[in-house]
Computed example of a mutant assay.
Amino acid sequence: MTTTHKTGTREEWLAARMELLKAEKAHTRQGDALAAQRQALPWVRVDREYLFETERGAASLEDLFGGRSQLLVYHFMFGPDYVAGCPSCSSIADGFNGIVVHLENHDVAFSAVSRAPLAKLQAFRKRMGWTFPWASSSGGDFNFDFNVSFTEQQQRDGSIVYNFERDGHAMDAGEPPPAVVQTAAATGTDVPTFARDRPGLSAFVREGGAIYHTYSSYARGMDAIWGMYPWLDRAPKGRNETAPGIWWRHHDRYEKA
């Protein structure tokens, strides 16, 4: 059986590859410009006090910096009623272990933060074989203030603002997509409960005795830190996501080949 994809000679491939290289270089330069634009955003002083539970005990937001000047937080979807962490967040988090030591030695602290109680987070972290810092914001306003957690009332009255848009996510509107139903089931919850927490990334800086919020990103803004996607984008068939649900799992839930 022959392939239906376009084929050619090595010379034809090289000519096409050189054209693609021009586009890739332009994309890289645009990425550099976007990074500079992110870093040029105005800083917003954080005046509220936040309390977290960590494996080292109670901690403030400043404590999460660990003496460093910068802090990156991954808002991991693990609500108080979840049985397991979101499989999408989990597949992103599979790439965290190796980067933390490098960030910490470049004056950047890292922590995942979730609303589930610390004991539940620690048990799931052990199951997944992770070692990165993970703090519980249970009972506090941190997740709500940074627009990754929402109340039942917000769901009912349609006042959720996520990814900088009002009702900008399909989790709570009409019939939920199959991927959302499937993902909620993997966390041991129903869709409304699952949808009260969302993924995100927030950055903070500590300077002059104050803490500032500098950047946040949500939804598909997580693609850039989702380790498997840059690889799949270079695979022959790309992301190849044609099914209505999701194909990835918690890494210990794949059938062994």
Rank of each mutant, 00 (worst) to 15 (best):
L72I: 09
V108Q: 09
H106S: 12
D233F: 13
S138V: 02
A15I: 05
S216T: 00
E19I: 06
I99D: 05
Y50Q: 04
Y162H: 08
S159A: 04
S136W: 03
A40R: 12
G158N: 01
A135T: 01
L20Y: 08
S69D: 15
W247E: 15
A26T: 05
M222W: 00
F76C: 02
M222L: 13
P117I: 04
P133R: 10
H250N: 09
A15K: 12
A179H: 11
H213T: 05
A219Q: 11
M77W: 04
W43M: 06
C86L: 05
R249D: 11
W134R: 06
S90Y: 05
V181K: 13
F132D: 04
P244K: 08
G140E: 12
R156L: 01
S111G: 09
A235T: 12
R115A: 13
F52E: 03
A40H: 12
R29F: 11
G8C: 02
D81A: 05
A84R: 14
T2F: 08
P199D: 00
I92P: 01
S69M: 04
F65T: 07
A15Q: 12
R38E: 06
Q155N: 10
Q37S: 13
F150I: 00
L61Y: 11
C89I: 05
R220H: 10
R56G: 10
A33L: 11
D167E: 15
W248V: 06
P230C: 07
E175Q: 07
A243K: 10
V73W: 03
G85T: 02
A58M: 07
L232D: 11
D190C: 01
D107Q: 09
